[in-house]
Measured scan of single mutants.
Amino acid sequence: TTIHVGDLTLKYDNPKKAYEIAKKLAKKYNLTVTIKNGKITVT
């Protein structure tokens, strides 16, 4: 599972963990989490 945050690309083997991290990042920086085709993007 890949999380895209701006220019950063973070890879995680565990999709659930990746989603949790994405949610935390989104909350911290007041951003939105988008999931599309298995890719998690924080914008």
Rank of each mutant, 00 (worst) to 15 (best):
L25D: 00
I21E: 08
V42T: 02
I35A: 03
K36R: 13
L25K: 01
I21D: 05
I21A: 14
K27C: 06
K27G: 05
I3F: 02
E20A: 13
N30Y: 05
Y19C: 11
I35T: 05
N37E: 12
A18Q: 02
G6K: 03
H4F: 10
L25N: 00
I35W: 06
A22W: 10
K17R: 10
T1I: 15
I35C: 12
V42P: 00
K17Y: 12
K28V: 05
L8Y: 07
T34W: 04
T34G: 04
T9H: 11
K16V: 11
T9L: 14
V42S: 00
A26K: 03
N14K: 04
N14Y: 05
N37H: 10
K36M: 13
T2K: 04
D7E: 13
T43N: 07
K28E: 08
D13I: 07
G38N: 10
T41C: 07
V33G: 00
V33D: 00
K16L: 13
T32K: 11
K36V: 15
T32N: 09
D7T: 13
K16P: 03
Y12N: 03
T34H: 11
K28G: 01
K24A: 13
G38H: 05
A26M: 05
I21K: 06
I35R: 03
I3N: 03
Y19P: 00
T41R: 04
I40D: 01
T9R: 04
T34C: 09
K23Y: 12
K11T: 15
K24M: 14
G38M: 02
N37W: 09
K11S: 13
T41W: 15
E20W: 12
I3D: 02
T43E: 12
Y29K: 03
Y12L: 08
H4S: 10
K16G: 09
K23M: 15
I35E: 04
N37T: 06
K36F: 11
Y19F: 12
D13N: 10
L8F: 08
D13Q: 08
K11H: 15
K16C: 14
A22S: 02
D13E: 11
A22N: 00
T2Y: 09
Y19E: 07
V5C: 09
I40G: 01
L31I: 06
